[in-house]
C-alpha cells in the first residue's frame, strides 16, 4: 500500500503515524508539506494529529485553507482513500470533506486517556478487520473532540451507517453526540476519527487493536 502523510506546521503526531504506516504496510509513506500543491498518486492519504497552526482561530481551520488542500479535494473526488486522525479529523470537517464539527470537549479540559471504542460499522474500508460491534480499548488525546452536527445530518449519518466508531460503555470522553468517535463520507472513502489507532499497534502500547484500521486499509489497497 502506497501512502502519503500531509504535514502542516504544528503537526506533531506525524512521526507516530509515519511509523505505524511503515510498520504495517512495509512501505515508507511520502511526506507532503502543506505548501505543496500536488499529492502523489497513492492508495491512502493521511492527515495526522497535532496542533496545526497551533489550533489558532479554530482547530483545523487554518490548515484547511493550506495550498495542499486543493489537491486533497481532487483526490477525494477521485475516490482516493483519506484518513484523518484527531487534528486530521478536525481539518477534514473544516475543509467540508466530512460533515459536522469538533467542538471543545464538554469538560473543557484536554483529555488524554484510554476509552472503549466500538466498531459500529465493520463493513467499511477502514474497519473491515474488526468484528461488527467489537469493543476495544483505544487512547484519545485532544482538547476539541466533541462531535456536533445538526439533527438532520446526524439522522443521515445514522441511517446511512456512516458512523464507523463510537465510544462504548459510557467512556465518551468529550460529549460527542451519539457517542461518535469516527465517521465517513457518503462514498465511504474518507474517514475521520478522534482516537489514535497509531498509538496502539505494539506490545509497548499495551495492545495492538489499533492495527485493525491500517490492516483494513491494506486489505482494501
Amino acid at each position: 500500500m502506497k501512502s502519503a502523510v500531509l504535514v502542516f506546521p504544528g503537526s506533531n503526531r506525524d512521526r507516530d503515524m509515519i511509523r505505524a504506516l511503515e510498520d504495517i504496510s512495509g512501505q515508507k509513506p511520502a511526506l507532503v508539506w502543506h505548501q505543496e500543491t500536488t499529492i502523489p498518486d497513492v492508495d491512502l492519504i493521511v492527515l495526522p494529529g497535532g496542533f496545526s497552526y497551533g489550533d489558532y482561530l479554530r482547530s483545523g481551520a487554518i490548515a484547511a485553507r493550506s495550498p495542499v488542500m486543493k489537491d486533497l479535494q481532487r483526490h477525494a473526488t477521485r475516490g482516493t482513500k483519506i484518513l484523518g486522525v484527531c487534528n486530521g479529523f478536525q481539518i477534514l470537517t473544516e475543509a467540508g470533506l466530512l460533515p459536522g464539527a469538533l467542538m471543545r470537549n464538554a469538560g473543557l479540559n484536554f483529555v488524554c486517556k484510554t476509552v472503549q471504542l466500538e466498531a459500529s460499522n465493520a463493513d467499511t474500508l477502514f474497519s473491515r478487520q474488526y468484528e461488527q460491534g467489537e469493543v476495544f480499548a483505544c487512547p484519545v488525546a485532544h482538547h476539541d473532540g466533541n462531535y456536533f452536527a445538526d439533527a438532520r445530518t446526524l439522522n443521515t449519518l445514522e441511517s446511512d451507517n456512516r458512523i464507523v466508531f463510537r465510544y462504548a460503555n459510557g467512556t465518551n470522553p468529550n460529549g460527542s453526540l451519539n457517542d461518535i468517535a469516527g465517521i465517513m463520507n457518503e462514498s465511504g472513502t474518507v474517514m475521520g476519527m478522534m482516537p489514535h489507532p497509531e498509538n496502539l499497534i505494539e506490545e509497548l502500547h499495551g495492545g495492538v487493536s489499533g492495527r485493525g484500521v491500517f490492516t483494513s486499509l491494506l486489505e482494501a489497497a
Binding site: N12, R13, R15, D16, R19, A20, N109, F110, V111, C112, K113, P139, A141, H196, E198, N199, I201, L204, H205
Partner: peptide
C-alpha cells in the same frame, strides 16, 4: 491532572504517570 497531559505522543511511552518512574523507549 495527568489526564490533561498528553502522555502517549511519540508512541514510545512504556510507563505512564502513576508508576514509580516514567519510562520512554
Amino acid at each position: 491532572i495527568t489526564e490533561q497531559y498528553d502522555c502517549l505522543i511519540q508512541a514510545n511511552t512504556a510507563q505512564l504517570p502513576g508508576g514509580d518512574a516514567g519510562v520512554v523507549r
